[in-house]
Design a protein around this nucleic acid. Structure first.
Ligand SMILES: [Mn+2]
Ligand SMILES: [Mn+2]
Ligand SMILES: [Mn+2]
Ligand SMILES: [Mn+2]
Lengths: 231, 231
DNA sequence: ATTATGATTTAGTGTATCCTAAACTATATA
DNA sequence: TATATAGTTTAGGATACACTAAATCATAAT
């Protein structure tokens, strides 16, 4: 029996599974064994076993050979974890001068050890931020989350002007590269051209007044929102 | 196999055992199975099992039916954990307005999840403090620790003037009570009298200009240092 | 020297989480 | 419709860490 920290407290693995499942569902994809396994870097049989346990605990509904859906309780926990993670990331960057590529790994561990009180105090010290350093929305204490409408950069037609909204937070090297291009959430740029066959995307950085070329895979991971054309 | 955070990383239980063993040894007591069991609130057979594992991993030397001694490696880890714990406690109090009775429980969990970088950044933000909120010394990054010479209040003769140096950090209710008396590390008072048969201790708080009476058990947990009599 | 007592270890379990290898299911394709 | 393939689950095993009950050891008191 593990010591209860807060109202919820389900162990490191369980909490990470619920987050992963939430993210898959949020992306519209069904949360299948294999996708969860890939997201968490765990073997598929292990995921099958954990799904059994999650299901027994009423955190997911499982349709064998299909995938899982979060129950209300499961979603509640997932959103609480997302809040913890993102508050922690923001705090580490703002108050402790962590670089934006280092915060994810640190938050991935702290999220399971921090009490609700700690998260609440950090949020307060930050002025209750609504987005984390990578542009992801931070759920409120009551579990509300705003999901800005965005498009992957690969789906923005040439000629359009966009604001970068979200960059994935997983890969430190990728984040350092993105930063080196002058890109981060909030930056405005024009899409100049797309090369076919999953080729690179050319963009024009408005503030920096310079062109950059991004590989297809990188562009796929950048979520943007379109800006109305100016007159 | 657990993911490696830093150079060291031995799992929550292992780290807590090493801290407990260090504290027992530091108090001069041999680190016996039962004392460890009592400190960690774990059954003696469980401790026996863990001692086997610690010994196999070269963290302690075990003399069956006698007790354990930390190896150099074990001591290194224990001091690193003590540093983490105490930096965290201090940070929570100074920067996040935690009360001094709440920091211990929080640090007890965070100490296993925080990276060396995080601890270093917190220490820096605090100006590399040398003592935690309960008066315990904070080991340096290289593992040095200063141990002020102190006496339990129960051993201070009547008539002597002392400064309170260390109060234990475990029991929140006790800490709140101590605080309500106007006591905390750094406070100066005179020992007025001791009642025999483990009776109460009467003290005179110099700054507050008031008397207080402390139970024997409480007095036993207050570490003081004597002040030279003034001329 | 013997025995009572308390401390310690051993034996046997249980839970959570991971793994690989093998079996099974769903489905797309021929 | 039969089968190949990809995805999933089952079977069997490992590790870390906790527990209770029983056996063993050390030692202090008779
Ligand atoms: Mn995590
Ligand atoms: Mn993030
Ligand atoms: Mn701890
Ligand atoms: Mn302390």
């Amino acid at each position: 029996m593990t010591a209860q920290i807060n109202s919820i407290d389900l162990g490191v693995s369980t909490e990470d599974y619920l987050k992963a499942i939430y993210k898959l569902e949020a992306h519209g994809q069904p949360a299948q064994t294999t996708s969860i396994a890939e997201a968490l870097q765990i073997s598929a049989p292990s995921v099958s076993g954990m799904i059994k346990r999650l299901s027994d605990n009423g955190l997911v509904e499982h349709q064998p050979y299909k995938g899982v859906h979060l129950t209300d309780e499961g979603r509640r926990v997932a959103l609480a974890m997302l809040r913890r993670h993102r508050i922690l990331e923001t705090y580490l960057m703002e108050k402790l001068k962590f670089s934006w590529d280092a915060v994810h790994a640190e938050a991935e561990r702290l999220e399971h050890a921090a009490s609700d009180l700690l998260i609440q105090r950090m949020a307060l010290a930050l002025g209750n931020p609504r987005f984390d350093p990578h542009g992801d929305p931070i759920p409120t204490e009551s579990g509300e989350i705003e999901t800005p409408l965005t498009v992957a950069l690969t789906d923005v037609p040439a000629g359009k002007r966009v604001v970068l909204v979200v960059v994935g937070d997983q890969d430190p090297a990728r984040l350092r590269f993105i930063e080196s291009l002058g890109l981060k959430p909030g930056v405005t740029f024009d899409v100049v051209s797309h090369q076919p066959f999953r080729g690179p995307v050319e963009i024009w950085l408005v503030a920096d007044r310079k062109n950059e070329v991004l590989g297809h895979e990188l562009a796929l991971s950048l979520q943007c929102s379109l800006i109305e054309e100016e007159a």
